[in-house]
């Protein structure tokens, strides 16, 4: 392995500081004894305790987890189907258009997605609540799952499916016994990604949520408008922790799968 030069080390430190100093500060001040956010008053975990007594934050957290869980599960189901279909049907007419349409929400401004889903719910006279946030989250996170599944399927040897059929397995059983277990890691990492995306979404949720369906990011945002408190730091730290766990797990699964593929 090549040794790190001084320049490389400097570049690394500056780059990572730029990225992570704000978050590290936030985490640090969540353990601040003082009520003043920017003045260090000693180490304490009392703000985490305070959270437990804040009914508003607890409600928002519950809504967020509920929405994230349901939306990521449904998005994974739909995204998996889309990803498999896009690879399995090869080159049909209009394929580029279809795959482009699956990926489009990834680059679409969130404001637009939020606004358009809001308009749809209003025109369908659906009251804004947990349901609408969940539906909107399914819409935008499904494409991320589809991308993950499609990239997994592109390295999937179709003759494995054919071998199972050839050995007397029905097409449905072949999917359940062969295809599904093989692509399961990709499905899990797709689910984790969809879960974290839903967890930290503010823009789309703020368009589609109604009274009683305030998610944690919305709650934090509205609390900040009344001034930053150490409580906000604490709840944000928890959120950062959750998202980190989700993303790291997803990428570890992906890495392990790549190694297995390389070996086989």
């Amino acid at each position: 392995m090549k040794k790190f030069g001084n320049f490389n080390i400097a570049a690394l430190v500056i780059g990572f500081s730029f990225l992570y100093i704000p978050i590290i500060l936030l985490i640090l001040f969540s353990f601040n004894e003082s009520r003043l956010v920017t003045v260090w008053g000693g180490f304490s975990t009392k703000w985490y305790g305070e959270l437990m007594h804040n009914q508003g934050i607890k409600d928002a957290a519950w809504v967020t987890i509920k929405v994230a869980f349901i939306s990521s599960t449904v998005a994974t189901l739909l995204g998996t189907i889309a990803g498999i279909v896009m690879t399995r049907f090869g080159n049909f007419r209009g394929r580029t258009l279809f795959s482009g349409m699956i990926y489009a929400p990834m680059v679409m401004p969130e404001v637009i997605i939020g606004l358009s889903t809001l308009l749809m719910f209003v025109s369908l006279a659906i009251d804004r609540g947990v349901l609408t946030v969940t539906l909107a989250h399914i819409t935008f996170s499904m494409c991320y799952v589809a991308v993950i599944i499609q990239s997994r399927m592109s390295s999937y040897d179709d003759s494995i499916t054919e071998a199972a059929l050839d050995l007397g397995c029905t097409p449905f059983r072949t999917f359940m016994l062969i295809t599904f277990p093989i692509i399961l890691p990709a499905i899990v990492s797709g689910w984790l990604l969809a879960f974290t995306l839903s967890l930290d979404d503010l823009v789309i949720a703020s368009f589609t949520s109604g009274p009683g369906s305030t998610t944690l990011p919305i709650k934090i945002y509205s609390m900040v408008r009344l001034g930053v408190t150490p409580e906000i730091n604490a709840v944000s730290t928890i959120l950062v922790g959750l998202v980190t766990v989700g993303v790291v797990t997803a990428s570890l699964i992906g890495k392990r799968q790549k190694q297995q593929l390389a070996q086989s």
């Binding site: 003759s159 050839d166 007397g168 397995c169």
Partner: peptide, 20 residues
Amino acid sequence: IPPHLRPINMMFQSYALFPH
């Protein structure tokens, strides 16, 4: 007759072993 009902088996070029 669909492949899974034929009295014929095939050995694939890529071997197509079930990796799991």
